[in-house]
């Protein structure tokens, strides 16, 4: 039996791009993960306001969603994004850590369906939400 949280942590944090953006895995459940990414001035999208670029939030959503697939009880060994749509509700507040919660709410033999939400310190007002589909790869 593989150690699910450990496998998910490696899947999330051993990825060079996730590392470059400072992503951390906070918690792992059955097909559900919580992650965070601290504010960094290199990630700014608009220098006038200091707001981070939407693409950074997208990357966190994508990485968290893939990790949620890995964390599903059907034990996929690998996954890749088929498509992911993000809706930006508001600008993230400069200086605050972004947290994401991704949930893999349905899995078939070949496809995983996910939804995700990103927030900053104001947990009641999401910064962005995302929905997507991912490939599911099982061990032979």
């Amino acid at each position: 039996m593989i150690d699910k949280p450990e496998f998910a942590k490696v899947f999330m944090e051993a990825v060079p791009h996730n590392n470059a953006l400072g992503m951390k895995l906070i918690s792992v459940g059955d097909g559900v993960v919580e992650t965070e990414m601290p504010y960094d001035e290199r990630f700014i999208g608009d220098p006038k306001t200091g707001v981070i670029h939407g693409g950074v939030v997208y990357a966190l959503m994508d990485a968290s969603s893939g990790t949620a697939v890995i964390a599903h009880k059907s034990n996929p060994v690998s996954t890749a994004t088929i498509d992911l749509r993000i809706d930006y509700m508001r600008s993230a507040t400069p200086g605050q850590t972004i947290r994401a919660r991704a949930e893999c709410y349905h899995v078939t033999r070949t496809v995983a369906f996910i939804r995700a939400t990103a927030t900053d310190d104001d947990r009641d007002n999401p910064v962005a939400t995302a929905t997507g589909t991912f490939t599911v790869e099982h061990a032979e």
């Binding site: 060079p16 791009h17 996730n18 670029h53 693409g55 994508d62 990485a63 890749a80 994004t81």
Partner: peptide, 22 residues
């Protein structure tokens, strides 16, 4: 630092998305 899958290796979907969005 743009790698998302070190095994293949392949670009990260988030890096690709940000590239497209920019």
């Amino acid at each position: 630092k743009l790698i998302g899958n070190p095994m293949l290796p392949a670009l990260h979907g988030g890096a690709t998305a940000a590239f497209l969005e920019v």
